[in-house]
Design a protein around this nucleic acid. Structure first.
Length: 113
RNA sequence: CGAGUGAAACAUACGGCGGCGGGGCGGCUUGUCCGCUCUGAGGAAAGUCCGGGCUUUUCAGAAGCAUGGUAACUGCUAACGGCAGCCGGGGGUGACCCCAGGGAUAGUGCAACAGAAAGAAACCGCCGCAUUUUUGCGGUAAGGAUGGAAAGGCGAGGUAAGAGCUCACCAGCGUUGUGGUGACACAGCGGCUAUGUAAACCCUACCUGAAGCAACCUCCGUAUGGGGCAUGGGGCCUUUGGUCCCGGCGGAGCUUCGCGCGCCCCGGAGAGGGCUUGAGCUUGCUGGCAACAGCAAGUCGAGAUAGAUCGUCGUUUAAUACAGAACCCGGCUUACGGUUCAGUCGUUUU
RNA sequence: UGGGGAUUUGUGUAAGGGUAGCACACCAGACUCUGACUCUGUUUGUGAGGGUUCGAAUCCUUCAUCCCCAA
């Protein structure tokens, strides 16, 4: 089992335009409901983050952190994580805390102790 | 010990747990699945500065012109602006390193300011003659001043004063001889020599069609998409023709039913190929100063498509720099970590 | 990923290898009781390194940054 992936530019633009954003210096999370019945995930790192090595690392860190925080299917949602300049320098354990906070605020995760 | 030079190999180790891309095998609940197993980034993958393969194109393959590029010589290479050796020049105490290094008597241009003068020169000065005694004519590149550069350098002879005018040595040019495949070096002789710039135009020799895998090829044919052509049916009239209407084809003329859409162009949601066995890599031998070539044996080492190598714990003195394949090779350039080896210089000790 | 272009003062732009200009802005002064307008003056620059040249914004080369084009 793994994440279903958003891979079309149209889909990204739809989520950016209509979805809700949760902003943090370490990462930005866009969330939007879909009608597919399952969860889709996208990871983005622009050229502002750095060159190829830094962008790849940013995507890896975001993917590893999301695996620890969110189960593979939480309902009909599209989720996009956008890396910021700090992201490639982080450990995934640091990013887990902020992701848990942001996803709870967005309503995808229930509050837990 | 310190400073510096050249070369080589390696470049996030090892183990546990979890996770990712690709191939193969197996399972059944046939799919966005599960299990096992093999494999999975670089020395620069980077910059895109050159050269090739490959593909398309209006065949450019032979010759010429234009444009752009290269530039000592000999070799190596598929080719190159690359590499090796060698020549010449330059830098460093040295190990060693650097050089777009053809032609300025083929021609044109430029050399600001300064300076008399920037090309075949007379401002001052020096000398001779004349003279109204402070000017005119002539000779002269030794001296002055300017400049990045001042008409081969320096010494002696010579002279009215001077001058390659003459001579020795040195530099440059031409020519002859010797050595070398050659660039060139050495020696002799000759006349006595017109600055720099060609990374200014240019001349000479050689090379060069253009674009790039988002190239290109194939499938599918969606909103029964848009346009054109062909052809058919019906009505009317001035009937070998004109005009209007209808339209995928067929049953049978509308409705309706069945089949599944005449040809060409545009549009293009999407899928696949191109895609990795190649001037390949490793080891040994032979030839060559070397670059490199040849032979033999062994070997297969990514192929993604929102784009795969990570997270965490432990061990060792410590796990770290620059940095991520995207069609593929050969170079160059730039970025960068510690390690090893071989030379050099300085200081100290023996 | 591939291809192309640009970089001159705070901003916009000129400049045949020979002192880097122009306009606006900023600052100072004058005019005014004060401000604006106007006038006068000053300051502020060739993206970085290396090379060719007597001398580079300009010529050559290696980098850096920014922009554009091609699904």
């Amino acid at each position: 089992m793994r994440y279903r992936v958003i891979n079309k530019n149209k889909e990204f633009l739809r989520v950016y335009g209509k979805g809700k954003a949760q902003v943090h210096p370490q990462v930005v999370v866009y969330v939007l409901k879909n009608r597919l019945g399952y969860t889709r995930v996208g990871f983005t790192a622009t050229k502002k983050v750095g060159k190829a090595v830094k962008r790849n690392r940013a995507r890896r860190v975001m993917r590893a952190a999301l695996c620890q925080v969110m189960p593979y299917d939480v309902g009909s949602w599209d989720v996009i994580l956008v890396a910021r300049a700090q992201t490639p320098g982080l450990k995934s354990t640091q990013l887990e805390k902020t992701l848990r906070k942001l996803l709870t605020r967005a309503g995808l995760l229930e509050k837990e102790s």
